[in-house]
Design a protein around this nucleic acid. Sequence first.
DNA 1: TCGGTCATGTTATAAAATAACATTTGCGCC
DNA 2: GGCGCAAATGTTATTTTATAACATGACCGA
Lengths: 163, 163
Amino acid sequence: MTDEALAFPTARHDHAACIAEALDRAERLCAERGERLTTLRRQVLELVWSGHAPQGAYDLLEQLGQARGRVAPPTVYRALEFLQAQGLIHRIESLNAFIGCPIPEERHSGQFFICRLCGLAAELDVGAIDRAIDREATRLGFTIERRTVELQGLCRACREAQA
Amino acid sequence: MTDEALAFPTARHDHAACIAEALDRAERLCAERGERLTTLRRQVLELVWSGHAPQGAYDLLEQLGQARGRVAPPTVYRALEFLQAQGLIHRIESLNAFIGCPIPEERHSGQFFICRLCGLAAELDVGAIDRAIDREATRLGFTIERRTVELQGLCRACREAQA
DNA sequence: TCGGTCATGTTATAAAATAACATTTGCGCC
DNA sequence: GGCGCAAATGTTATTTTATAACATGACCGA
Ligand SMILES: [Zn+2]
Ligand SMILES: [Zn+2]
Ligand SMILES: [Zn+2]
Ligand SMILES: [Zn+2]
């Protein structure tokens, strides 16, 4: 993150700072809420934040295995469930994968732009998109509880590299 | 469908007509395109259209097993792949399920409003939503290839029944 | 330090999807 | 009609993703 939260992650930004900031915010948030960000949960969050590309649960599982020996699926899934409940990560439905949330303080669903070449994903929270959806829901009499907005394609860098 | 295409399916509409129309349009479309809507594919499409709730691949597999004995997963998945390629069905990512498309003639992604109580799903193609997303993509320099917009919650009927 | 709750470990299994190869079917061509 | 190819389906095995159920351990207040 570090300032480019809610934009497409640039190729060369200080990602160590992203990770550090994400972990700090997670600590603060959990403290405020009286929730326990245990070592395991913190490790999983750190792994999710290892890049700006969504991470699969079994990738995380394997990486986690390096840090601690032998880890079973429920270990990772439970941590992911906690992190999701706290709004610290989002699940990308179209990829069966997870990504860190740059603005965990506010509850939201976000819109995800995901590049199929470099794998990077940008989370945005564009009011205009939400409002267009809300208007339609109102017209239908539909009460929205959960939103999934995922756009896949090519990011600017990858499209330019293509040509 | 039968007229209420792109609206929330009403509790008591002539669903037999929906199915018949969907199958007719599929026949016509495939004929136009020189594609083969085989018996198997037609059966799977009919099963997907058995209601307006998204159907899981293994549900379809089981139902298909009634018509023909012993069916293996690839059989159903291949039919679903074909139907998707022809735009006759959409995959609902957040449910790992499939639903019939009411307007298969036009290529589109659609927005899905899915009720968590009755399970019904409405496909809409709201220009305002697409445009709001497109504007953001342009701003980012992102080229969209595939859209996933799924809203889950309560339909009007279920919300009213709740109260 | 006791007792309860929440977190994690462990084992097994369910659910969803695909790979790889064999067989059959449909269809144009002779 | 019979031949040969390509597409569709069958078959078997396996991969990937996710959860159920129960055991053990850590933390925290009384
Ligand atoms: Zn970063
Ligand atoms: Zn977010
Ligand atoms: Zn109907
Ligand atoms: Zn559609």
